[in-house]
Amino acid sequence: MIIALSAAQIIEHDLHFIKIIFNFVKQTFNFTTMTNHKMPTLCPSCDETLKVETLRCEGCDTLVKGCYALPRFMRLTSEEQEFLLEFIECSGSLKELAARRSLSYPTVRNMLDNTIDHLKNIE
């Protein structure tokens, strides 16, 4: 079955394709920019915890607006987040983590205890 397309439809189709390419390039660029910056979790003027207001789908550019609290993990400092991720990578072994970071065992244990305290305070 042959579908005859009008000139206007062909132009519209091409424009849609160009738009997809453009969005892809834009999102790639945005993604690169995002990874270079830390997500702020505290208000720079009053130190209150920030909330998420807008979420965006990178596939179709849909925006979701609302008021969402940051997950507890995101409210830890970036150092604490990195520490916990590394701790999980070491299967929860403080000894291994201490060796990996060239730190003493009590130092990493203190870091873990301080992170736990911070998490409890976030609750």
Binding site: S102, L103, S104, Y105, P106, T107
Partner: peptide
Amino acid sequence: PFHRIAGVKAL
């Protein structure tokens, strides 16, 4: 120096 050394090694 105790951020780097503790435990058995320090002992």
